[in-house]
């Protein structure tokens, strides 16, 4: 297939995506700068940004922390799952089936399930006793939120890494074994380096997604402090129409941080030998 034909084939999807993403971003940017008011003439101003500014540092830090922790755990579990699937150990097919089972579930369903499992009146608390049950849902460490994202996204990471490794890792693994590398050495010197690009890309996607999504944190988190997307949602759904520019300002900040993270990840990936 020629490049031109391939370009034509992806063009419809690209145009729609471009229209939605860029159009949405432009609308948010214009609304946050007072250029799309509900009433009165448009006037360029930064009052929405100045209003949310006091809460921004804690919101950004909280969103960043949740996204970073969720991404790290998802990458570790996803990679281990991919290794088990690839080596066919402990019923590789069963593990593949169980781990990918979480993918079709909506995040909201996953979050609700996690709440029923980890809440202080949840399934696990009833088994192990509610007296000393830690504050996992709505607690200061946001454990249920991180657990829900990690559970859901680890399957995505596992799927990406397995797809990349399955066709070639066995041959490289056997080659390394016959050069004297034991299991841990093969993991360190062959399998991890071969997986790095796939891990980097999937980790970036997971981070950006978690950073910008609100459902799980809104359902399983505590009321204050709020992560960026939860705060944006609250302001967007507020009865006061004047809150809309503030919600748009938070959406713009979320986008900037997410794009910055993606840019840093791209720079880091360029240093990975296999990516080059």
């Amino acid at each position: 297939m020629g490049n031109r034909k391939a370009t034509l084939l992806v063009l419809p999807a690209t145009v729609i995506s471009f229209f939605v993403v860029v159009g949405g971003l432009l609308a948010a940017l214009m609304q946050s700068l007072g250029l799309l008011p509900f009433a009165g003439p448009p006037t360029l101003n930064s009052s929405a940004y100045l209003t949310v500014a006091p809460d921004l540092p804690s919101a950004v830090a909280l969103s960043f922390g949740i996204a970073a922790a969720s991404t790290l755990i998802a990458v570790i579990f996803g990679f281990v799952t991919a290794m088990l699937v690839m080596r066919g150990r402990f019923g590789g097919r069963l593990i593949a089936m169980v781990s990918t089972w979480s993918i079709p579930f909506p995040h909201l369903v996953g979050a609700a399930s996690m709440g029923l499992l980890l809440g202080d009146a949840g399934f696990l608390a009833r088994i192990f006793g509610t007296d000393s049950w830690p504050e996992l849902v709505g607690g200061p460490a946001w454990i249920a939120v991180i657990a829900a994202y990690s559970w859901k996204e680890s399957a995505f990471v596992a799927l990406v890494v397995t797809g990349v490794l399955l066709t070639r890792a066995t041959a490289y693994d056997e080659t390394a074994a016959l050069l004297g590398a034991g299991r841990l050495r093969r993991l360190r010197h062959v399998l991890v380096p071969l997986s790095l690009p796939a891990l980097g890309v999937s980790a970036t996607i997971v981070f950006v997604y978690v950073f910008g999504s609100y459902e799980v944190a809104w359902l399983l988190g505590r009321p204050y402090p709020e992560p960026l997307p939860v705060m944006a949602l609250r302001l967007f759904s507020s009865a006061s129409l004047s809150s809309r520019p503030e919600a748009a300002a938070l959406a713009v900040v979320t986008t900037i941080v997410a794009l910055g993270a993606a840019g840093l990840a791209a720079l880091a990936l360029r240093r990975v030998p296999l990516w080059q």
């Binding site: 041959a171 490289y172 056997e174 080659t175 390394a176 074994a177 016959l178 050069l179 004297g180 590398a181 034991g182 050495r185 010197h189 062959v190 380096p193 071969l194 790095l196 990975v272 030998p273 296999l274």
Partner: peptide
């Protein structure tokens, strides 16, 4: 890995994340 046997197959299977010298140095490194 402990048999003292090496294999060269039809595909060279050089590790793509290493340069030529480090590919040859692989056995010593591990």
């Amino acid at each position: 890995e402990q048999r003292g046997i090496s294999l060269v197959s039809q595909r060279p299977l050089l590790f793509p994340h290493l340069n030529v010298l480090d590919n040859v140095a692989f056995a010593a490194r591990v």
